[in-house]
């Protein structure tokens, strides 16, 4: 394990120690099995303790973990016959968003997702999953095709935000996101979005105005990054930890606020610890959502969607 988060250090140190003892036992006559047992029990307790009491900032760290699975990882585990489709037909193909069609349990679906890279080279290519307007327009093209061919849409949300750049502004970043919101609000087919890492503001919502919104337990969804909020509010980016708490960005906070529908559990320590298990958890929730939404007529879908979003607010 290359990347150890600060709050996980005691766990990794103890695990290291257990491994040392095991090596010693194997290489010598001394029997340390009872010591190992004691330490393993302690490790179990420590893991439960630490991972059972994650604060919002800890979850931000997990959501940003470099080994956290990406949209393409889940697509590989959950779908068959995935065909990636490129381009917005207007300007260029934006690698920060992937789109395509596939089968989910033998039924056709459309997939849209923000795609992070796994290393620096990939991240430069993917622009760290920060889309340009053409990414949103590509996603919209595929969503309209989903509507035409009457198949549901599954969006994987995983971005720090829409790209803040010159070309993005020149080509109408605001308009691209706004148009997506407007169009998604009246699609006649079911849509599910799942926040798998960071859900960063309008750039995340730009593919996520869906019938159901789910979040992986340790993912975050926020109107602004904790660092951004801290520097605006308190002129001090190091207060990000406090901002993460105040902004209510965790899956549990957002379930309580009725912004999201379901919290999808993660393996202990985070999705990156066990991708197949994480994909299996996702599978359960996608199937449940689709089973429910596919039974509704277009009118019912649109009415429910209006009721859902109309009622978000507190005054």
């Amino acid at each position: 394990m290359k990347y150890v988060l600060d709050f996980e250090k005691p766990i990794f140190e103890l695990r290291e120690k257990i491994n040392e003892l095991k090596t010693m036992t194997a290489a010598s006559e001394v029997d340390l099995s009872s010591e190992i047992k004691t330490l393993e029990a302690r490790l179990e307790k420590l893991e439960k303790d630490i991972y059972g009491h994650l604060n919002p900032w800890d979850r931000v760290q997990i959501a940003r973990h470099p080994e956290r699975p990406t949209a393409l990882d889940y697509i590989e585990h959950l779908f068959t016959d995935f065909i990636e489709l490129h381009g917005d037909r207007l300007y260029r193909d934006d690698p920060a968003i992937i789109t395509g069609i596939a089968k989910y349990k033998d039924e056709p679906v459309t997939i849209v997702g923000q795609q992070r890279g796994k290393n620096t080279k990939e991240n430069l290519y993917r622009n760290f999953a920060s889309p340009h307007p053409e990414g949103y327009r590509k996603a919209l093209r595929q969503m309209k095709l989903a509507e035409k061919f009457n198949r549901p849409i599954i969006s994987f949300i995983d971005t720090k935000g829409a790209h803040p750049g010159k070309g993005a502004e020149e080509r109408g970043q605001g308009e691209a996101i706004a148009r997506n919101l407007r169009e998604m609000s009246h699609l006649s087919v079911p849509s599910i979005s799942i926040v798998i890492g960071e859900g960063g503001s309008g750039g995340a919502l730009g593919i996520g105005l869906s019938d159901h919104i789910h979040m992986l337990e340790n993912s975050t969804y926020s109107v602004i990054s904790p660092e951004g909020a801290a520097s605006i509010l308190w002129k001090d980016a190091t207060k990000a930890k406090e901002a993460a708490l105040s902004l209510k960005i965790t899956s549990h906070d957002l379930r309580r606020l009725n912004i999201i529908d379901e919290i999808i559990p993660e393996p202990r320590g985070g999705a990156h610890r066990d991708l197949p298990m994480q994909a299996a958890y996702l599978d359960v929730y996608i199937e449940k959502s689709l089973n429910y939404l596919m039974k509704l007529s277009s009118d019912q879908l649109m009415n429910n969607r209006w009721e859902k979003y109309k009622n978000i607010g507190s005054f």
Binding site: S185, G202, S222, V223, I224, L233, I259, W306, Y309, I312
Partner: peptide, 26 residues
């Protein structure tokens, strides 16, 4: 932009207002 102090409730107003625009548009 969005009102930071209302967090995700603010962000979702983007969706809500856009949906209302489309209802008006239609």
């Amino acid at each position: 932009g969005a009102r930071m102090q209302e967090g995700m409730i603010s962000l979702m107003q983007m969706g809500k207002t856009s949906m209302a625009v489309e209802r008006f548009n239609r």
